[in-house]
Design a protein around this nucleic acid. Structure first.
Lengths: 207, 207
DNA sequence: TTGCAAATTGACGTTTCGTCACTTTTGTGA
DNA sequence: TCACAAAAGTGACGAAACGTCAATTTGCAA
């Protein structure tokens, strides 16, 4: 699943190749980062994976760094509607939390499996949190939590810290889950949901 | 506080300058990463911050990346005894958790005293958590949790997931705390400890 | 003091970077 | 359909950073 959330008008050949070139660069970059690792990869390596000339790269991105951000942003953009659906379909706060974590864990499993034949430990999901779409995801999480607090579905906690805690948990427990085989999404989601709702007692093994 | 955990024998001028040079490079690198950001920094920028010649750098590190890893490893090495003391001095599991988080938050506040770019830009995009000392910290956390479980001080939870959750929470809430001013270490530690022990209810504001 | 190994040095060839003058492509309106 | 302007693509080029290595300096021990 390496399609991007390409929103809108395919008309006009200009626009069309522009989108296609940008996409080609991102796809090539993803492959190169997976193969060589982010640090070792060069802009030249990336464009070599496309049909474009080196100068063209700079019409689309300022640097390797910006390409990486675009990839991260892209991931966040694809995840956001999933998260929103989890929110809208939930019939309780506990249900929202659980389905949000299930959605996230499912997402990273998908995102990593087609990623690499070389099973890359080189890509733990510690991504920059300051791209626009990443910030939007944080805001979305935080807003959900504030709503729940306002509606009395959750206690009056520091929503910023709680959102950060949820994200930190999701990232770290998500990575741990990916290291296990098979990937037990539900077990991980049960664990974190229980932990958040009831603390250690809530996280205790059900068995 | 940028001293490193330099363990052992200072004897011999050879050994001494070797340690000093390595240290000089690390200190310069820390300053350069803070000032220019990790991505923008070059190996030359780093050695310019020392009295050494460019070639000498490569006697100590293969690359900028390796310098960063050494810094991270160094931080973990300095933090480990602090964590251990928190463990040994604690008179309950709750106390251990709380003092461990206080110790960590205190540590990162100290560690980010340098002025310059925002914290996120001082780091590489892909953070490796698998340096020896980092792993040791994880093991230490996990071991503490397993001991607590074995002694009946904590419920029977998945220690791996719980350790990851603690680390993820510490990192994200810690970063959030650093963004606030003033840095309220105790408030943050109370929040995360309450959250872990009792869930949302435990994290609720005390006011 | 002398001799050798270890460490430092900076100049050098190599690789990558980012730019820019030039070419090709696309859209538009006569 | 054609002409023409704006947009996008191209690759060669100078600048910058890389990593190496022969020459030199430094430290240690005989």
């Amino acid at each position: 699943m390496s399609e991007t959330a390409a929103n809108v008008e395919p008309v006009g050949k200009r626009e069309k190749t522009k989108v296609a070139n940008r996409q080609a660069i991102l796809i090539a970059a993803r492959a190169v980062f997976a193969e060589l690792g982010y640090e070792a990869a060069t802009v030249r390596d990336i464009i070599r994976g496309t049909e474009l000339a080196s100068g063209t790269f700079y019409n689309y991105f300022k640097s390797k760094e910006e390409v990486f951000d675009a990839l991260a942003d892209d991931g966040a953009r694809r995840f956001r509607p999933i998260l929103r659906m989890a929110r809208e379909n939930a019939n309780s706060f506990a249900d929202y939390l659980h389905s949000a974590f299930v959605a996230y864990f499912h997402f990273i499993v998908q995102d990593n499996q087609l990623e690499g034949k070389p099973i890359e430990e080189r890509r733990p999901h510690i991504l920059r949190m300051d791209t626009p779409e990443m910030t939007a995801v944080y805001q979305e999480v935080r807003q959900s939590l504030e709503d729940a607090i306002a509606h009395g579905d959750a206690p009056h906690v520091d929503a910023d810290y709680l959102a950060c805690a949820c994200i930190g948990i999701a990232q770290e427990v998500g990575s741990a889950m990916l290291r296990r085989s098979p990937h037990d999404i539900d077990a991980a989601a049960d664990f974190v949901t229980g932990l958040l709702l009831k603390g250690l007692l809530g996280a205790a093994r059900k068995s």
